[in-house]
Nucleic acid binder design. Structure first.
Lengths: 201, 201
DNA sequence: GCCTTCGCTGACACAGCGTGTCAACACTGC
DNA sequence: GCAGTGTTGACACGCTGTGTCAGCGAAGGC
């Protein structure tokens, strides 16, 4: 059973609508603010009813957040793909680098900065963002533990991943606060330099 | 201008109602689950209208979460109160210990465990919990930076606090998952042992 | 004593979110 | 052409959180 390369025209169409809907939503939310924008407004701007909006995104938060869910998976994939001989510090640094790149090295950096600022500046979205990160943490911990051949209840992999994510948060916040003027990769290196002594190489 | 030791009968009364309301709410939420319990139910159980409930707590989440907001302040106070000669690792360990003690060393540990499990097991509450922690992180970072005489934009205090909170989360999760059978203070020591090399003493 | 004032309360009404349901429509493959 | 599948809008519903208003009781001034 091979998954078709072209995932059935219907699904492509759905993806297309889904993407454009998010585009419109993000633009509107960034302009008016999260709380000042209703789902009805977004739906109307996209030329559809509120009910249809919810067929693409379960909630207003999801339009913004789901973007980052994909990144979480990419980070986990990257960590799993790093050479197994690589020390955890380096592997984690690279994995976090993927997330940082997604934010700052985006094809439209200005828009991405706006989205990040929207998330960090909106309590509801910030909370969801952290929650998503907690999920990612669980997955990453499993991957790292497997890499190191440690039992899944060992404290080290969990703490190592939590430290790496702490670095990510610190970097993201400072990058957003500087309006993108600070170099995210340099910030990440600096943060990991602090963590290095505890990450064992 | 001295703040009265007895904060005006009206305020005491308000505090009393507030406490009992939370008691009833927590009991109901823990029994039925967060999503299966409406604010109307809680209010009815406390013998008041939904409108009055919201005069004491801004939202259903707040009944549960506000409890922890106070703990956040206590942790910050503890960190500020630690002798300034104390190395950051020890000061942070003690500060986090206050939060751990509040959860596990509570007068009614069974109830507290139920609340913690409720929070960690309910996505909405977990998200709010993390959000609250992010606020606390900002405050703690300021205190630690001041302690160390470092500029407020130095990376070290921020990362140190984030690491300490990462330890707190890891401990809390494992303690809750073990149904309180694991010793929280030992867990905390173990987590801080991992962090120690990066916390500079 | 009465009366004013303040805080608390319940009873509405309202906007917003998210969901279930149903009929209408389009587009696929037989 | 026709049945089957998927998408859409319309409507109704329950739940949350807030504004508003009138009623009620306790505290304090005259």
């Amino acid at each position: 059973m091979v998954v078709p390369v072209v995932p059935s025209l219907a699904q492509r169409k759905r993806q297309l609508v889904s993407d454009e809907l998010r585009e419109i939503a993000l633009q509107l939310l960034a302009r008016q603010g999260y709380d000042n924008t209703t789902v009805d407004e977004i739906a109307a701007a996209a030329g559809m009813s509120r009910r249809t909006f919810h067929r693409y995104y379960a909630s207003k938060e999801d339009v913004v957040i789901q973007l980052l869910a994909d990144v979480g998976d990419q980070v986990q994939t990257e960590l799993a793909a790093r050479p197994s001989a690589e020390p955890p510090a380096e592997a984690l640094r690279r994995a976090v680098g993927v997330a940082i790149d997604f934010c700052s090295g985006h094809h439209d950096p200005v828009k991405m900065l706006a989205v990040v600022r929207l998330i960090l500046g909106t309590p509801t979205l910030h909370a969801r963002f952290l929650s998503l990160q907690a999920e990612a943490q669980a997955g990453l911990t499993g991957v790292l533990a497997a890499r190191l051949g440690l039992p899944p209840d060992d404290l080290y992999p969990e703490m190592a991943v939590r430290m790496a994510l702490a670095a990510f948060d610190a970097v993201l916040e400072r990058w957003a606060a500087s309006s993108g003027s600070l170099d995210p990769q340099e910030l990440t290196d600096a943060a990991f330099a602090v963590l290095a002594p505890a990450l064992r190489g």
